[in-house]
């Protein structure tokens, strides 16, 4: 009771802890010893090496450049002879087709045209001069008839005295 005794597990854990510390301490010097890389200075291994291009090589490059232009341009061109149908011939063909359709078709008069009332004898084209110069007897008789009818109906109107007319609004007045 009250006695303190170290266990085997405690000893093992302590040993492992010491090993980790040693490992971390050994790593620190290597990282601190890494030389720093200066900005703007390329590494020696990746330095560019100058090369001379001879006249013949430059000519070859020029020829490749021009050949590329020719090839690309040739692909862009539209072959006019392959595009069809030819506009002019197409128009002529359409014209022929339309003419044939017109020739074969038969236009029929609609019945509604024949059902319209015909003008009176006095209003025909042969009597146009008279129509424009002065009113005809027909028109005078028609106007007289209508005037008499209107006058007769106006005379038939009688007004009766009914007193005041009262109108109620809404349900609140009930």
């Amino acid at each position: 009771m009250g006695c303190v005794v170290s266990k085997s597990d405690d000893i093992k854990n302590e040993n492992e802890s010491r090993q980790r510390n040693q490992a971390s301490s050994s790593q620190q010097p290597s990282s601190s010893q890494t030389p720093s890389k200066q900005i703007g200075i390329a590494a020696k291994d990746s330095e560019e090496q100058p090369q001379e291009v001879s006249y013949s090589q430059m000519r070859e490059l020029d020829n490749d450049f021009f050949k590329d232009i020719i090839d690309r341009t040739a692909q862009k061109f539209i072959d006019v002879s392959m595009v069809g149908p030819d506009g002019k011939d197409s128009f002529l063909d359409r014209e022929k087709d339309y003419s044939a359709q017109i020739k074969d078709s038969k236009l029929l008069k609609p019945t509604s045209l024949t059902s319209l009332p015909r003008l009176s004898q006095q209003c025909q084209m042969s009597n146009l001069q008279n129509l424009l110069s002065q009113p005809t007897t027909f028109d005078n008789e028609l106007m007289s008839k209508y005037t008499s009818s209107i006058s007769e109906n106006l005379n038939g109107i009688h007004i009766k005295e009914c007193g005041e007319l009262v109108v109620f609004f809404g349900n609140s007045l009930k």
């Binding site: 560019e48 090496q49 100058p50 001379e52 291009v53 430059m58 490059l61």
Partner: peptide, 17 residues
């Protein structure tokens, strides 16, 4: 747009390895 190569001309270009 491209200037053609003149006779005897040489040009130095840099190329990364």
């Amino acid at each position: 747009s491209r200037k053609t190569t003149k006779a005897g001309a040489k040009k130095t270009i840099k190329k990364a390895n």
